[in-house]
Design a binder for these strands. Structure first.
Lengths: 249, 249
DNA sequence: GAAGGCTTCGTACGTCGTACCAACAACGTT
DNA sequence: AACGTTGTTGGTACGACGTACGAAGCCTTC
C-alpha cells in the first residue's frame, strides 16, 4: 500500500514512551529554543542540547531521528505562539489577516534564528493550525479555493521576507557603534557613492555622515510600522483585485 | 580616525596580486557557484572549491578571510545577474519596479541555495547597483526619501519571501512521487484533516486523494504567475497609498 | 528471580572551517 | 649573477559538528 514510510515525518511517529522516558519532545524543543534565543541558532547542537538537559548526546536520537527533526520541533513550537486566541479573532477578513500577519511578524522578529531554519519543516501541526486560522479569516469572502490559497501564501511570503530583513537590520545594526559591521557597511557604501556611479543613491543619502544619512533615509517609522505599511498596501491591492470589501474604519 | 578596520568587508580589501596569483576572486566565486547549482549549497566546502580549482584547500584563504566571505562573493555574483540592461529599462516606475522584481525572482528561484545564504552579505557592489536601479525607477515620482526607501524594501522583501517559498515547493514537490517528502507531508495533512479539527482546511481540500486536492487548490497558475499576482497587488496598493500614477495599459 | 525489551549513552568515524607555519617562487637590489 | 624580501601556496593538525553502532542499565511482566 505504498505507506511503508508513514513514519517519514516526525509528526506521524508516536512520541516514544511505553515506559517512563526521561524526556519529552516538547521538553527537548523548548530547551533547544532557549539556547537559540540566548545564543543564536548556531549554538544549537545535539551535544549542547543534550548537555543542557543533563543527558548523553545520543539520547536525543531516541526522541528524534536527525537534527532536522529537532529543528522541525523548534519551528513547530514557535508556530504555536503565532496562533490567535479564539476570543481575539477579528470578524472582518482584513482585520483577521492583518492580526495574524502582525502576530507572526512579532514572533519571527523576536526569534530571528527561525528564519534561517524555516527552509525545512513546512507542515507541523501548528503550521496547519496557522493555516486554518488564515483560512478562517477568509471564510466570509466569496473567493474560490485557489484564490484563497494564493492570498494566504502571498501574505505569509511578505511577512517572512520582511521579518527576515528586519531582523538582519536590527541584529546587525542596533548599536551601529564604531567598527560594527553596519558601520563598516555604511562606510563602504559611502566610498562607493563617492565614485559617482550611483547618482540616485547619492541624491538620496548625500555626502555627509553615513550614520546620520541612514537615519534620515530610514525615516521616523519603526521597523514594525514599516512592515504595517507594506502589509496594508498588499492587502489593499488584494482587496481591489478581488473586489473584497474593506473594513469601515 | 576609527577606521582601523577599513578591511572589515571583503569589498574594501584589494584583490591580492602584486605578483601573479593563480586565481582571482571572481574565478573562485564562479567555481563555488557552479558547485552550488549542480549539487546544492551544502556541497560548497572550502576543500571542495579548492579541489575543483586544482588548488590546496588553504590557498583559498589567501583570497578570502572566511567562508562567509566566499558566500558574499557568490551572492554578489548572483546579484550581478539581476541587473537590468540600460536599454531595457522601462520608463514608468511601475513597469521598472515590476521588471526588476520579476528578474530578481527569476534569478533567485533559479539558484534556490542563494536564499539560504542570503542572510549575510547585505551590501556587495552589485547589491548597491541593484538598489540604484530600483531607485532610478522611482526618480520620476515625487516620493520623499524615506518613502522611496520603504517602497523598495517592501518590494524586495516580498520578492525574497515568495521566491523562498516557491523554491521550496518546487524543490521538494516537483516529482511528488510515492514516498517523496511532499507525498508524506500531504498524507500527514490528510490524516490531520480527518480529525475534524481543521474545518476550513477540510472544506478547501476535501477528503479525496491529497495529490489531486493539492493540484486543485494551487490552481492553474504557475508559481511565477502567482508571484506576479502578488507583486501587482503590492504595487497597486502602494500606488494607491502614495497616489502614484499607474501605467495606461 | 529470570527474561526481554525499552531506554540510555560511550566510542568512533568522517566531515567541516580554519590556525599555524614551512616551503616555494617572483621580484628589487646590489 | 647572487641574494634577501616578501608575495603566494598548501600540508598538518585541532576542535567542532552530525550520527552509526552497539554495549550497558533498568523497568516490567511472568
Amino acid at each position: 500500500m505504498a505507506s511503508a514510510d508513514d513514519d517519514a515525518l516526525i509528526w506521524t511517529r508516536p512520541e516514544p514512551g511505553t515506559r517512563r522516558p526521561k524526556f519529552t519532545r516538547e521538553q527537548i524543543a523548548s530547551t533547544a529554543l532557549a539556547i537559540a534565543d540566548a545564543e543564536g541558532f548556531a549554538a544549537v547542537s545535539m551535544r549542547r542540547v543534550a548537555g543542557e538537559l543533563g543527558a548523553g548526546t545520543m539520547t536525543l536520537y531516541y526522541y528524534v531521528r536527525t537534527k532536522d527533526e529537532l529543528v522541525a520541533l523548534m519551528d513547530n513550537a514557535l508556530m504555536g505562539e503565532v496562533l490567535i486566541p479564539e476570543d481575539e479573532f477579528p470578524s472582518h477578513w482584513y482585520d483577521a489577516l492583518s492580526a495574524i500577519a502582525l502576530r507572526t511578524w512579532d514572533i519571527l522578529t523576536r526569534h530571528p534564528w527561525a528564519l534561517h531554519s524555516l527552509q525545512n519543516a513546512p507542515v507541523g501541526p501548528n503550521n496547519l493550525r496557522h493555516f486554518e486560522q488564515a483560512l478562517a479569516s477568509l471564510a466570509g469572502t466569496d473567493l474560490d479555493a485557489p484564490d484563497k490559497f494564493l492570498l494566504i501564501n502571498l501574505v505569509d511570503d511578505f511577512v517572512h521576507g520582511n521579518a527576515l530583513r528586519s531582523a538582519e537590520v536590527r541584529e546587525a545594526g542596533e548599536p551601529a557603534a564604531d567598527g560594527s559591521p553596519v558601520d563598516a557597511a555604511l562606510r563602504f557604501g559611502q566610498t562607493q557613492i563617492a565614485t559617482g556611479r550611483f547618482p540616485h543613491t547619492q541624491a538620496l543619502f548625500g555626502d555627509g555622515d553615513p550614520r546620520e544619512a541612514w537615519g534620515r533615509v530610514v525615516g521616523p517609522l519603526s521597523e514594525r510600522d514599516r512592515f504595517r505599511v507594506g502589509l496594508s498596501a498588499l492587502l489593499h491591492g488584494a482587496a481591489s483585485r478581488w473586489k473584497l470589501a474593506l473594513p469601515d474604519a
